[in-house]
Write a protein that binds this DNA or RNA. Structure first.
Length: 515
RNA sequence: GGCGGCGUGGCCGAGUGGCUUAGGCAAGGGUCUGCAAAACCCUCUACCCCGGUUCAAUUCCGGGCGCCGCCUCCA
């Protein structure tokens, strides 16, 4: 079987040792672009990645706050219902960006949130007659399962909103102190007009915002443009104590509080869907910069395009949702992933089942080539990697990168047909496919489900299938390592080993394979 | 109304002032094969409309038409 021949291409390799990596230097000066890889070795490079920054609406050279390190935060879902195809696109888009940055030699801290308290969740809980925590738990689990199946690597930090109420309260207090917020009738509001720079990200001009459209009955705003930082709780709603009485946080504050806590002011990348630019991200900037005395919140804002259905944005409110888990049941998850990656992340993509069928055929071509190849220890074809790097350096153009990949496949197949050495092409293939997350896995672990369930129970982790459990356990272990709780981290490692799964840490993150 | 984006061959989808074809799927031809399948190779169909700039525009500029997103919750 191909399993032994195909390396686990999700497996990153060490980069920061042997003089390569972030501290690599060129005549004593730092190579600001870090580097690109040839057969696992990092070749220092001065070339900078170019990214499209929504803030400024232009392509800009990517220079990090801390040399060699990327701090990124991506707006995750509000866990009110099961994920749809659009959620998967976002997760995959930023997963590839993260993988590519690591491949280029950066160390990346990737934080994503789960918002588990919000109006819609409360509404869903009321409707279903269960608690908001149960709604969030149920939906959150579905998101994690779907993402795992899409080969989205576990985040370094999964920030849960309700675990950060004190941080949010503290931030609101800061905003009150600085005169950017006011308490009113048990609510606290952010005063939009107190911040002259408001509107910078979305291109809105305060005086041209349609007033009234942001005013709900029962609110106590001084200005319709203001937005809630804290809402007094109504009967039968979950509440937390605060200096302003029992209540719950507004929608935007959790992202600001958690991003600042985990990454600090002025971090590198903030990602999310295009539809979050206004008001969510605009408000995040306002709150954060106002609380931090005007220091810039984020260096680069990256926004992915929407998934559409018959030309119309897929959204719950439109009622044209295709469930992500259903899709993943019907087609190979890697094909869905390929479907996403065929278009540039900022473009809208239309969803249609035929397109996923297409993607499956394309995936077959990739995997068939790799199976022909067998084990390889050649150096990767340099020209192919340079083309790949150029494509990805251009605002993470996965569509073009995919073109390079298929060219590699054709060249490799030609060599295999004629009996020539295809090693360099196979090696390049492995390299590229590792970044895109499209390699054929060398094993599955479904038969280990029983023992994995035991391990999962021991560490308070859940998951619908074996792969999801492994994903969760590794996420839990990564979290434990982050807290320097190595006893727990090692316990997870040993338990997984007993169950038949070997965990390996690399600079590209943690990977695993069967023992 | 304000802000932003898009319009590429049968379908999906990159890209570019002329140089060598993006790429994938589909289709046609071929190789291989006991047959079939699989796999591989080869080939084919472009740049919404109208002006302008230019030796040369799908690519730049202007106008038009069409489509989409945000301005309220939304990945």
């Amino acid at each position: 079987m191909p399993s032994s021949a195909v390396p686990n291409t999700d497996n990153g390799q060490r980069t920061t040792e042997n003089g390569h990596g972030p501290r690599a230097s060129d005549n004593g000066r730092r190579a600001s672009g870090i580097g690109y890889r040839v057969s696992g070795r990092l070749i220092p490079s001065r070339a900078l990645i170019q990214v499209y920054n929504t803030l400024g609406r232009s392509m800009q050279p990517f220079e990090t706050r801390d040399p060699g390190h990327v701090a990124m935060y991506v707006c995750g879902p509000t866990v009110q219902a099961a994920p749809h195809v659009g959620h998967g696109r976002q997760a995959v888009a930023f997963d590839v960006i993260r993988r590519y940055l690591e491949w280029r030699g950066y160390s990346v801290k990737y934080v994503a949130n789960i918002t588990d308290i919000e109006d819609k969740i409360i509404a869903a809980a009321t409707e279903l007659g269960i608690s908001t925590a149960e709604v969030a738990e149920r939906a959150g689990q579905q998101f994690l399962d779907a993402y795992a199946r899409l080969r989205v690597r576990p985040y370094d930090v999964t920030a849960v909103a309700t675990d950060h109420i004190p941080e949010m309260i503290e931030m609101i207090e800061q905003l009150l102190e600085r005169g950017h917020a006011y308490a009113s009738g048990g609510d606290v509001y952010f005063s939009v007009r107190s911040l002259p720079t408001y509107g910078e990200l979305s291109g809105r001009i305060v005086d041209e915002l349609v007033p009234g459209s942001r005013l709900d009955p029962g609110e106590h705003k001084r200005d319709p443009l203001d937005f809630a930082l804290w809402k007094a709780s109504k009967p039968n709603e979950p509440t937390w104590d605060s200096p302003w009485g029992p209540g719950r946080p507004g929608w935007h504050i959790e992202c600001s509080a958690m991003a600042l806590k985990e990454l600090g002011i002025g971090f590198d990348i903030h990602g999310g869907g295009l539809d979050l630019i206004f008001p969510h991200h605009e408000n995040e900037i306002a709150q954060s910069e106002a609380a931090e005395g005007g220091r810039p919140f984020v260096r680069y804002w990256l926004h992915n395009g929407m998934v559409r259905l018959k030309g119309e944005k897929m959204a719950k409110s439109v009622g044209n949702i295709v469930g992500l888990l259903d899709l993943l049941d019907q087609y190979r998850p890697e094909a869905v992933r390929l479907f996403y990656l065929r278009a540039h992340y900022r473009q809208p993509i239309d969803f249609a089942p035929e397109l996923v069928v297409d993607a499956e055929a394309a995936l077959d071509r990739l995997w068939a080539f790799r199976r022909r190849g067998g084990r390889v220890d050649a150096a990767a074809d340099r020209a192919a990697l340079e083309r790949f790097t150029a494509a990805m350096d251009d605002d993470f153009n996965t569509a073009e990168a995919m073109g390079v990949l298929f060219d590699v496949v054709r060249d490799g197949n030609r060599h295999l047909d004629s009996g020539e050495d295809a090693g360099p092409y196979l090696a390049a293939f492995d390299e590229i496919v590792g970044v895109l997350g499209l390699g054929e896995l060398d094993s599955d672990v479904d038969d280990l489900l029983e023992s994995l369930r035991d391990v999962a129970a021991r560490f308070g982790v859940t998951g619908s299938d074996a792969a999801a459990i492994v994903f969760e356990l590794i996420a839990a272990r990564t979290a434990a390592r982050g807290e320097r709780d190595f006893e727990r981290a090692d316990a997870i490692r040993f338990s997984l080993a007993e169950a038949g799964v070997v965990v390996e840490d690399g600079s590209g993150g943690t990977s695993w394979h069967r023992s």
